[in-house]
Design a protein around this nucleic acid. Structure first.
Lengths: 327, 327
DNA sequence: CTGTTAGCGCGTTCAC
DNA sequence: GTGAACGCGCTAACAG
């Protein structure tokens, strides 16, 4: 920076000022500085800047899994929007583990981030404490509830589960099941299962929640179909914890000669890229992952403007039931 | 840190030393420091550390797209392994754009990272210059070639394309096509297409490369099948640029009453989680994305030990042809 | 094995 | 609108 200043014939602090608030410097000086920066290929040292300012233009994001298409959408749109305003997004995966999440929060905090974005409302006690006393806004995403730490952007998984149930009931199905993968770890999937079961019970149907401990895959799905059929031979409809599982159920039904939706109606979750094009096409619930990212970016950028830690605020991004051939 | 030092009755630099090389401090002093750190909940300021040391324990990773399951595997395993050794992985997506990649490299460089991991060998000229003069090792992943910047870990996409062609030819197919999505941007897919075409030509078959400008989806696949059939009605086998597309082709064939593999043999790429469970199961090429991540971690950790920028070294992680029902 | 001494490159007052 | 002084929290020699 002092090289730039020397070349431009000004002092380093003028260069610094120009970099942070270009309008606070005279147009002529600014242009001269910009020219030198370009010519010298000067890149500011963000660590020095962050150290001096006691905060960095980093936004730390923690997702439960990198291999999940849902969060990929959110992270992708969030990153694009924040990058446009000069914020760096750091992404890490907690692998559905509270202690990993804690470690990541500590790691992020040591970068004096501008904001922290976590997935869901559930955290280890120590994590909550750290976040409470954090100097930056905290966003909890992909869930919706009344008491976010600061900000939350997402939707109610209980309601999503209920909606899936209502859809199947409306289609005349009463003997239902919720098929889930890795629900012992995936709290949001578990909430959908709960909502589903509650709604079915209210509608006077029967319901079975079946979990497979391994991650969702077509293989897992085959196992789940077997289990569900063993428990309830007369099953008429199933909801799955995501569309990958739904796809697997679709294939397993084809293999077993079960007619979809005649014998069995299926509704998935997530509306993945293939869901509209399976045969029959897969009914599902679309969660608007990209909107979650956009909304987070919008809220955070507003915070950064004012410089204050925001008041509690929960944004419901909702979801829609996508009715297709499988139900 | 001085608080910790005061509490422990030592000087700040002893605390610093303990944090960086615990064995360089006497066991008794170390234990005392550790206790105070725990009690005070001290978290080191990594920016200050990075500034003083002129490098941070950050590894910057740039992938072409967050929404791609292949890279998710690599990033996931890479992050897990590096985190175990106290390195933070920062992930960003360049969205298949050279200029975005350049901007990301600049952003990362300003963090004085311990290493940079990019995808592929193709970069903007200015990016190459920056990387050349970078103070840290640079890894180019997901491709294999003779002249990496420093390190490369991946496999040859030309060979992968050739292997797909050989597989179909061995199955008695001669009139072939390569169906790709977004290949104008995805250089690796384009290389597979090239390898495929070369091999088919050598085997005396006919070949057509069909590209769809939009990203891979079942919808894209339907369009591609139509285009391929229009150009070559007698087509006997296709390779797709990835399994999502392969899945779409499978569905489209079912819809059109084309028997797979009787009328048309299909081989995909990627071996995604659903590929083994479609109906018929999808033949494909498995790239070992997680191994790429592990290998990168191994090489980088070795570099960090020695502290030197590594000599040119290209690791070929290979791939395997997975022969299933669709071919 | 421990403490002392100098910065790392910049942001942030405050004068001018 | 611009510059000087100071310090952010830590690391890296070195001396002890």
């Amino acid at each position: 920076m002092s090289d730039v200043a020397a070349e431009a014939g000004v002092s380093p602090s003028t260069v610094s000022l120009f970099l942070r608030r270009p309008t606070a410097v005279s147009a002529k000086t600014g242009a001269a500085i910009a020219r030198v920066i370009e010519r010298l290929g000067y890149v500011p040292n963000l660590m020095a800047g962050g150290l001096a300012a006691a905060r960095s233009r980093v936004v730390g994001v923690i997702v439960p899994s990198m291999r999940n298409a849902f969060f990929a959408q959110t992270v992708s749109s969030l990153q694009t929007l924040l990058a446009q305003h000069g914020f760096q997004v750091m992404i890490a995966s907690a692998d559905y583990d509270d202690q990993s999440e804690l470690a990541l929060v500590q790691a992020y905090l040591s970068w004096s981030p501008s904001a922290l974005v976590l997935t869901g409302f559930h955290h280890a006690v120590m994590t909550r404490d750290l976040l409470h006393s954090a100097a930056c806004p905290v966003v909890e995403m992909w869930e919706h509830g009344d008491h976010p730490l600061d900000l939350s952007v997402g939707f109610s998984h209980i309601e999503a589960g209920r909606a899936a149930a209502r859809h199947l009931v409306r289609r005349g199905r009463r003997q239902l099941a919720f098929l889930g993968a890795r629900m012992q770890e995936d709290r949001r999937a578990m909430q959908r299962a709960r909502g589903f079961a509650e709604e079915v019970a209210q509608a006077g149907g029967t319901v079975e929640i079946v979990n497979h401990p391994r991650p969702a895959s077509a293989e897992t799905a085959a196992g789940l179909v077997g289990m569900a059929l063993a428990k309830r031979p007369g099953i008429e409809g199933v909801a799955t914890s995501n569309d990958t599982l739904g796809l697997g159920v679709l294939f397993e039904c084809a293999r077993r000669g079960i007619d979809v939706p005649g014998d069995l109606a299926i509704i998935g979750f997530g509306d993945l890229e293939f869901s509209g094009f399976t045969n029959p096409s897969l009914s599902t619930i679309r969660p608007f992952g990209d909107v979650i990212g956009e909304e987070i970016a919008r809220l955070l950028l507003a915070c950064f403007e004012t410089g204050e830690r925001p008041a509690n605020r929960a944004v419901d991004t909702g979801f829609v039931v996508v009715e297709r051939g499988s139900s």
